[in-house]
Amino acid sequence: MSGDVAVGIVAQRDNDRAHELAALLVAELERAFDAAVAVDELTGETIDANGVPVAEIADRDLAVSIGGDGTLLFVAREIGSTPLVGVNLGEVGFLNAVSPADADGVVTDLVRELRDAGSLEARVLDRLTATGRDADWTLEPALNEVLVHGPRRGPGGGATIEISIDGEPYAESHTDGVLVATPTGSTAYNLSEGGPLVRPAADSLVVTQMAAADGLPSLVVDADTEIELSVSDADGAYAIGDGRNRQPLEPPATVTVSLADEPVRLVGPDPDFFDGLENLD
């Protein structure tokens, strides 16, 4: 891809530091490379720059997320496998490896590599897809986890959920819910529910029951495992991806969770997993 490089930048909303850094990157990339740079619509209104819907950044050669891990998760949901680099304005930073002070240098180096070599070396992060068995729905891919729970989240809103691993039964219990997490998501909701930490490079998934009456330990399985969560004994239930995308269920219902076809491709320096752990509450 020698020649022009198209870059999309998404800054955390209502964050002045993120908007200031976005404006700096736009100016530098246009000056140094005459690059075609666009920002998300809300940022564009703030810094008087070319703004586009976040989903359109999927058509660009490189995406830049400025904010915390939540901002990067949002961007990743919208852009699929477009190369993505995260600038960390948050505290933990399991996904965002670039400090604000280094952002200009890192992003310009990536654009230069794209212009000269035509591609970028990326760290591939698996995502999950959830589909309804015998039902016509599929959640958008989730980078952290898929959660299945009863009519309400938390105590008193549970359901009986049977877990099957590649067609073999693993556990069945009345529970607040069941999480299927990627290694990326092992440090998020999974960890708060007592699940294990998993290093990002591990080719695995984690299945964790939440406050189960007859619970079993969290189960770590191969990444290509097909997991089925069958819900019963409840007036209603939900399948939720990354705490955002929600599908109502009518028990009895079965949700199949497996790897999505499109992973997330992170570029730039790798985050330090163990440094991130030090920032966990």
Rank of each mutant, 00 (worst) to 15 (best):
G3N: 07
V7G: 12
Q12F: 10
Q12W: 01
H19S: 09
F33L: 02
A35M: 03
V37E: 14
E45M: 04
E45F: 07
A49T: 15
G51P: 00
V52Q: 13
I57C: 02
R60E: 02
A63M: 04
G67T: 01
D69H: 09
F74D: 05
R77H: 14
I79Y: 06
V85S: 13
V87W: 03
N88M: 06
G93Y: 09
G93A: 05
S99R: 05
A103F: 11
V111C: 08
V111Y: 00
S119G: 11
L120V: 01
A122K: 01
R123F: 09
L125N: 13
R127Y: 02
D136S: 11
W137V: 08
P141L: 00
V146Y: 13
A159I: 06
T160H: 03
I165K: 00
E168Q: 12
E168S: 14
H174Y: 10
G185I: 04
G185N: 04
A202Q: 04
D203N: 10
D203A: 15
S204R: 15
G215F: 04
S218V: 08
L219M: 03
E226C: 08
I227Y: 06
L229M: 10
V231F: 02
D233R: 10
I240F: 13
E250W: 13
S258K: 13
L259K: 11
E262Q: 10
D272C: 12
L280Y: 15
